[in-house]
Simulated assay, not measured.
Amino acid sequence: MATPPTTPRSTALPHDIEWRLPRHPRSVGRARTLLREQARMWKLPDDVTETAVLLLSELMTNAYRHAKVPPGREIRARCVETDGRLRLTVTDASDVLPVVRETGPEDESGRGLPLVAALADDWGAEPRPCGIGKTVWCELRCAPELP
């Protein structure tokens, strides 16, 4: 009796972690620290880690500063590494989607999303399916592209 051919499958599971942090300025630094530690455990390249930490910091800062929601709401930061890509998501309880705006040399803020757009391989924002809040995400390649 012949055995059916098998298709080789990847045995590596995706890396996936989520942190729930209070909507507070200190949560931005905490998220950076947690991501650095996780990236070290996942053995991500240093350059990818540093870019990811910067991008997560920008997304967390936007959620903390601009999500005008009742006290006690959390910000969720999630990192998923699979198939050579690292996806960072930040979810808050505000329904207002972010807008990239042009900044001038005198502006003291407003450069976060342009920085995300410039450094990430892809990014976007969408309302949460449950109808409360939004998720802003970005992706980075963490493995060399194949020719």
Results as ranks from 00 to 15, higher is better:
residue 122 D to P: 00
residue 25 P to I: 11
residue 51 T to M: 04
residue 85 R to A: 10
residue 32 R to T: 09
residue 20 R to C: 11
residue 62 N to R: 05
residue 130 C to A: 13
residue 54 L to E: 09
residue 41 M to Q: 14
residue 138 C to N: 05
residue 136 V to N: 02
residue 39 A to W: 00
residue 2 A to V: 10
residue 54 L to N: 07
residue 3 T to P: 04
residue 27 S to P: 08
residue 91 T to N: 00
residue 77 A to P: 06
residue 87 R to D: 05
residue 73 R to G: 02
residue 24 H to Y: 03
residue 81 E to I: 04
residue 21 L to Y: 00
residue 50 E to C: 00
residue 15 H to I: 01
residue 100 V to L: 14
residue 95 D to N: 14
residue 64 Y to P: 05
residue 129 P to T: 11
residue 105 P to L: 12
residue 51 T to A: 05
residue 19 W to Y: 10
residue 68 K to R: 14
residue 90 V to A: 07
residue 129 P to S: 11
residue 51 T to H: 02
residue 12 A to E: 15
residue 40 R to F: 00
residue 75 I to A: 04
residue 93 A to D: 15
residue 77 A to E: 08
residue 86 L to K: 09
residue 52 A to I: 08
residue 8 P to N: 03
residue 92 D to S: 06
residue 62 N to G: 14
residue 145 E to G: 14
residue 43 K to P: 02
residue 66 H to Q: 13
residue 109 S to F: 03
residue 75 I to E: 04
residue 46 D to P: 01
residue 20 R to A: 12
residue 36 R to K: 14
residue 87 R to C: 07
residue 6 T to I: 02
residue 6 T to S: 07
residue 38 Q to Y: 05
residue 71 P to S: 07
residue 36 R to S: 13
residue 73 R to D: 14
residue 34 L to T: 05
residue 118 A to I: 04
residue 116 V to I: 15
residue 77 A to V: 09
residue 25 P to E: 14
residue 13 L to Q: 15
residue 122 D to F: 01
residue 143 A to H: 12
residue 129 P to A: 13
residue 29 G to R: 12
residue 81 E to L: 00
residue 19 W to N: 09
residue 84 G to A: 11
residue 94 S to Y: 07
residue 46 D to S: 13
residue 85 R to H: 13
residue 98 P to D: 09
residue 17 I to L: 09
residue 108 E to V: 15
residue 78 R to S: 10
residue 112 G to T: 12
residue 110 G to V: 14
residue 2 A to K: 10
residue 79 C to G: 08
residue 17 I to E: 12
residue 113 L to H: 00
residue 125 A to S: 15
residue 80 V to F: 01
residue 112 G to W: 01
residue 111 R to N: 06
residue 46 D to Q: 13
residue 79 C to Q: 03
residue 104 G to E: 09
residue 74 E to A: 11
residue 117 A to N: 10
residue 50 E to P: 02
residue 48 V to Q: 04
residue 80 V to R: 15
residue 28 V to M: 00
residue 103 T to N: 06
residue 14 P to D: 11
residue 93 A to F: 02
